[in-house]
Amino acid sequence: MTHDLIDRYLAAIARDLPERERTDIVAELRDELMSGVEAREEGLGRPMTEAETGAMLVEFGNPLVVAGRYRKTQHLIGPQVFPFWWAAMKATLVVIAAVYVILIVVKLIGGGALSANGLGSPISTMVFAFGVVTLVFALIERFGDPQKMARWRPERLPPAEGKRASRFELLTELGMGIVFLLWWTGAIHFRDVFGDIGLQVEMAPVWQRFFWWIVAYLVVELASNVVALLRPDRVQLVRWMVIWRSMMGAAILLGVIQAERFLIVSGPAGKAQAIFELWMRVGLGIAIAVFVARAAIEAWRLRQDGLTSRASA
């Protein structure tokens, strides 16, 4: 009777052992358990009851745990890889959150039903991203070289002082840039944004003329954010990229603002077109000012950086 319980216990352990070693390990564990039973029974002067055997097995350990200890891999992501997994996970989730916050804001402004084709719900996207990031790092843990990943160069550390965008800002900008690029290239669509008030809004042909310029601008913007994230030491390069892209943005919008019409609005509201055009013109003007200001600020900081480094040298 008591041996039946031990047989069942060993069979349960065997199921989770690597096949190559299974027989060997089970034989050894059987000997250990039987030696224990014999020693106990000798002490008691009678056979052990089933309850006593059960208690002994509980003491020995959960079959999954016992079998698990023989496995070479004891963790999915170990302590060496964990900090990198965590950093990548935070960055990924911030970018995704930024993307969805923008989508939600667009939806709120538009008031209509938002259908961003090609994008799932925030929850499913987050869960999917969590899975992908974890899988990648589990593979690095298993097949990669965590030592190599931890290698770093002190000279690439960002300066301790000075105005720089925080990682959160950079990731948020990255998220916004991605949404905009996806929308601009037609990968996602916002439909019926103004559907509720019966208006249909389309872009005027002037935007089409600047299509590739705007794509180029977005690529430079994404690139500057990626560089700023991955190589925080390249402060100068990033500043130049921001200056370049801001000038480019201002130039594009200066070209666009020349046009007579920016949007083609059709629908029952007659005055809407004029109001939209006015808003757009004001908006474009502000955007140009922002671009120029951004370029100027970065240029000023570039100069400041130069002065500080000369002063400390």
């Binding site: 070693e21 390990i25 020995f60 350990g61 745990v65 200890r69 023989y70």
Partner: peptide, 11 residues
Amino acid sequence: IDEGALYPMLR
């Protein structure tokens, strides 16, 4: 030392 730790260690 408990068995659960000893045998895998020996292996």
